[in-house]
């Protein structure tokens, strides 16, 4: 993140907001750190581990996610899940996203 070209910085800015939306959406099904990372990367969200993990914790602190340790498997993992507040936030963000998207399309024309 240190010496990026300005274009790369702008692209990162663009992506940064969408990762939150993606997490809230994806975690309606409980998920854990690394698994989520894989899923997001597969879905086209290019996010790094050292960005995602602190983000999950921040969202938990804001009450949009809740966490629980799952000790059933051989490796205990912390599972995150979207809360009711998180659902509401997700809906709001989606509306925002669609509004922005059409606004940009309108500009382009």
């Amino acid at each position: 993140m240190d010496e990026l070209s300005s274009l790369e910085q702008h692209r990162q800015e663009l992506r940064r907001g969408t990762v939150v939306l993606a997490c809230l959406a994806q975690l309606r099904e409980p998920g854990y750190g690394y698994g989520l990372l894989e899923t997001l990367e597969g879905a086209g969200f290019d996010v790094e581990a050292n960005t995602l993990y602190p983000l999950l914790r921040r969202l938990e602190k804001q009450g949009l996610l809740t966490s629980e340790w799952n000790t059933e498997e051989s490796r205990p993992r912390k599972f995150y899940r979207t809360t009711a507040d998180g659902e509401a936030a997700l809906a709001a963000l989606r509306i925002e996203w669609r509004a922005l998207s059409s606004a940009i399309d309108a500009l382009g024309a």
């Binding site: 690394y34 581990a49 205990p76 993992r77 912390k78």
Partner: peptide, 14 residues
């Protein structure tokens, strides 16, 4: 403790 567990699990997963 919590932080260590979570990080360790993530590292092992990776």
């Amino acid at each position: 403790a919590d932080l260590e567990r979570e990080l360790r699990a993530s590292i092992e997963d990776a």
